[in-house]
Structures are given as C-alpha cells and as structure tokens.
Design a protein around this nucleic acid. Structure first.
Length: 293
DNA sequence: AATCTACTCAACCGCCTCACC
DNA sequence: AGGTGAGGCGGTTGAGTAGAT
C-alpha cells in the first residue's frame, strides 16, 4: 500500500543532468512554458526524468536570472536577520534575495554562513550569556506604525497560503513603548541572536542545538553542557501550554517557529516577560520590514 | 604520487498543503 | 466531507573536488 509514486521510478534517469538534458528542458520551457504540469512535462520534452527533478533543475539552475557565486555582505545580513526571525524557511528567505534559490541559500547557510557566524561568536558556547540583555535598544522609526497593526482586527497575512494572524490581539500601542527599554534575543538552531543597534538580529554566540526543537525564553540560569553536547537548560524549563495567550498559534500561523516547535520558559522569572517582548518584537520586525510574497 | 579527509553543492526523498473532483 | 494527485518545501545524501598528509 502507500502512496503511488509520482513517476515510474524504473524508467526515469537519476543523478546529474547532462548538457543535452539541460538544453532539452530549457528549450521546451522557453517554447511552451511548464504548462502548469511538471509531471507531464518530461514526456512532452522528451526527457527520461521525473517531473519533480525537472522542476528542481529548472528552478535551481536553468531558470533565467539565477545568481551564482559569492554571497555579498548585504545578502549575509539579510539571511541572518531572516533566519533569526523565521528560522529555516528557505523559500521565504530566497524570496527576499532576487536571483538566489532556496537550495542555494540553504547550502550556503549549512556550509559557510553558520560557521562564519560561529567564528564571530565572542564567547565559548559552554558559558552562554543570559537570553535577555538590556544593553541594546533597536532604534525606533519616527513615523507611526501602519494602520494594519491597529485595525487588522486580529487578522492579517503575510505568509503563503493565506496563513493569518490569529489568537493574538494586535496591540493598539505604539510598539516603541513596548521596546524602549529592551533589546531582544532569540536562540534558534545552534546560534543565539540578539538585536543590534540597528534593530537587526545579529549572531551573539554559538549555542548548543536545543533538543526537541524548543524555543526558549527567559534567563538561562544554570545552563550547562552535557556530555552529548546538549544543554541542560530544557530540563529546568517550564513548558508553556500551546494555548497560552494564543502565542503558539501566532508563532506557527505566521512562520515564526513551526507547527512542531515547543515553547519553553527559561529558569528565570522573566520568561513570560521576554516571551511577550519576543512577540512584540516579531510584530515590530514585520512592520519595519514586511515580508511580501 | 598516492591516499586520506573535509568540504561543497546538485539532486533526491519524503512529507505537507492545496486544489480539484 | 473525503480521496487523490501535483506542487512545494526542508532535510539529507553522496559524487566530485580541493587541500592536507
């Protein structure tokens, strides 16, 4: 039983594409387009390839205006900032970098950028600083927040599939009042980010991958390294129920975090406060630099 | 020169979502 | 409402290559 395969695996070629295959695919698409059906395309184009493989080859390599080669500092900055905000949503990140593909960015992050950021980290991962530090405050734009913040009635969408903001009433306050005394930091995957003086996320230091995809708020207190490289912070934390303030709904429905991501409060007393700041910051980040698809 | 190791990145796999029937 | 198939996505793999020994 199980799902029917998308193509006849026995009769499709796999592995690297030859120049002949590339030109066949390119010529076909330039002439007829994809026809909205990748599965049927290879047969029409005379290719012994799976439709998915054709799609990938076109999107990642043959498509016009694909940018290859070194990433610029500006691209690095955008990737870091977005990764800190939304995690490994490579397609969304790629949408902000014209000419770059999600695969490209993913590879770049996994092989180079992550290491680069770890090297920039000022301290050993064995002794991470508190998650929340009062030293940096994002600069605040002089203009007012957009009306959508005040008037959205709890519903706006800026991620695909019309995922909408639900379960968290947008604040009618100017975000500045919520952020004026606070910086913001977040641990994601194996890096700890913090807003810098420009209000952008920047890598603060390497942080051990957190088991079970937890997102942690609050002071790290007795965080210590275990022999397997994990961090014992989770063991001291308190898991927040998903319905807490609608927070999890906000996170997952808007791409901040994901459906399986659990939320933890750190050991300190400031976890809830910081989590709330995180939510406000996420909204603020969106307002400053909306992701439009 | 030969071998080993680390790294890169194109491509694949499998899951999820959505549109259509 | 439920089933099905295609598209899209993120995670992972592995062949090729560069650098070290």
């Amino acid at each position: 039983m199980g799902r029917a395969p998308c193509c006849d695996k026995a009769n499709v070629k796999k592995g690297p594409w030859s120049p002949e295959e590339d030109s066949k695919l390119r010529e076909y698409i330039e002439k007829y387009g994809t026809g909205g059906n990748w599965i049927a395309l290879p047969q029409k184009a005379g290719l012994k390839r799976c439709g998915k493989s054709c799609r990938l080859r076109w999107l990642n390599y043959l498509r016009p205006n694909i940018k290859h080669g070194e990433f610029s500092d500006e691209e690095d900055r955008v990737i870091c900032s977005l990764f800190a905000s939304i995690g490994s949503r490579w397609s969304i990140i790629a949408a902000q970098l014209p000419g770059r593909t999600d695969n490209d960015i993913k590879n770049y992050w996994n092989t180079k950028l992550k290491k680069k950021l770890m090297a920039m980290a000022p301290q050993s991962h064995r002794n991470p600083p508190p998650f929340h530090s009062p030293h940096h405050t994002p600069p605040l734009p002089s203009h007012s927040p957009p009306s959508m913040y005040k008037d959205s009635g709890g519903s706006f969408s800026y991620y695909p599939q019309n995922r909408s903001f639900t379960g968290f009433e947008p604040s009618s306050q100017n975000p500045s009042s919520l952020l004026s005394n606070n910086s913001f930091s977040v641990a994601t995957n194996s890096l700890l980010f913090q807003t810098n003086q420009e209000g952008l996320f920047s890598p603060m230091q390497y942080y051990h991958p957190v088991k079970d995809n937890y997102l942690v708020f609050g002071s790290e207190s007795s965080c210590s390294s275990n022999s397997d490289g994990s961090c014992s912070l989770i063991g001291h934390g308190r898991e927040i129920k998903q319905e807490y303030m609608g927070f999890h709904g906000f996170m997952s429905s808007n791409g901040y975090g994901d459906q399986n991501q659990k939320v933890m409060l750190g050991n300190g007393d400031n976890g809830v406060e910081i989590m709330n700041q995180w939510v406000e910051k996420a909204k603020w980040e969106y307002w400053r630099n909306p992701i439009r698809l």
